[in-house]
């Protein structure tokens, strides 16, 4: 059955002849929605390999989170995992795809390109700077490309949001977007400040510094007994 991230909401009451589940309508609907997300197979570039293929594969296995039923048709999907750069020509198609999906629908933007345009932001005449200029995004998963584990974190974040999310009285209220996989205590402003500092700095490579810094620790060799001499020579000569 996979990983149970949350137990069934509500209270079980024993009655003669069986059990009765007492719960709220909102809770049980949101629980069901969160536990069986059907993603659309939408991949434009590099992220698709990690987000759709590696996560769908046997090592990472999206099925553990109840989200493995990847649908090629937007009519049958309720989760749009944006994997890859969106360019101007693709933008109207993406909008169409989103509008063809049935409500409630959720969007996870994975990778630098769908968040901001990523490495293609400057001097590009086609790259859209962030998919949220076209469609609303619920969860952002940073990385270039993110590891499959990061997508899982994003998915769990989305599931949490859905469970806490909309009610029947206020359907379709747009939730505030969340950035997944930010460690506790680090804010977005911290990262932006750090990036700005790095961009301003003159980037000249100090080769000696790089060679010293990137040397593998010598203790690592002991774990691999079957190594040939070439390794030790290599690691030693790097210094």
């Amino acid at each position: 059955m996979g990983i149970v991230t949350d137990k069934l909401p509500g209270a079980l009451e024993k009655v003669p002849g069986g059990n009765v589940l007492v719960t709220r309508f909102d809770e049980i609907i949101n629980w069901a929605r969160a536990s069986s997300l059907w993603p659309l197979t939408f991949g434009t570039s590099c992220c698709a390999i990690e987000m759709l293929m590696a996560t769908g594969g046997p090592r990472h296995d999206l099925a553990r989170f109840g989200a493995e039923v990847a649908r090629p048709s937007p009519r049958q999907a309720d989760l749009l995992i944006l994997a890859g750069t969106i360019v101007k020509r693709m933008a109207p198609r993406l909008r169409t795809l989103y509008e063809q999906m049935a409500e409630p629908r959720y969007v996870i933007a994975t990778g630098a390109c769908t968040i901001s345009g990523g490495p293609f932001i400057y001097h590009s005449y086609t790259t859209v700077r962030g998919a949220d200029e076209i469609i609303p995004v619920d969860v952002y998963v940073p990385g270039c490309p993110p590891r499959p584990e990061q997508l899982f974190h994003g998915l769990l974040t989305l599931q949490k949001m859905i469970k806490e999310g909309e009610t029947i009285r206020e359907p379709g209220v747009r939730r505030k977007p969340v950035i997944s996989a930010l460690p506790e205590g680090i804010t977005l402003e911290d990262i932006q400040g750090e990036m700005k500092e790095l961009l301003v700095k003159e980037n000249v490579v100090d080769v000696q510094h790089a060679v010293d810094k990137l040397k593998w620790p010598s203790g690592l060799n002991e774990s691999s007994s079957g190594d040939s001499g070439a390794n030790e020579r290599g690691a030693g000569d790097g210094a």
């Binding site: 570039s45 590099c46 750069t85 360019v87 020509r89 400057y122 590009s124 005449y125």
Partner: peptide
């Protein structure tokens, strides 16, 4: 549908940076 104008971007990057666009 995925023309990201890599050749134009490369004209404004030094050679070290150009390398990293080619991964994509």
């Amino acid at each position: 549908y995925i023309h990201r104008s890599i050749e134009k971007i490369s004209e404004h990057m030094n050679y070290m940076n150009c390398v990293h666009l080619t991964d994509r």
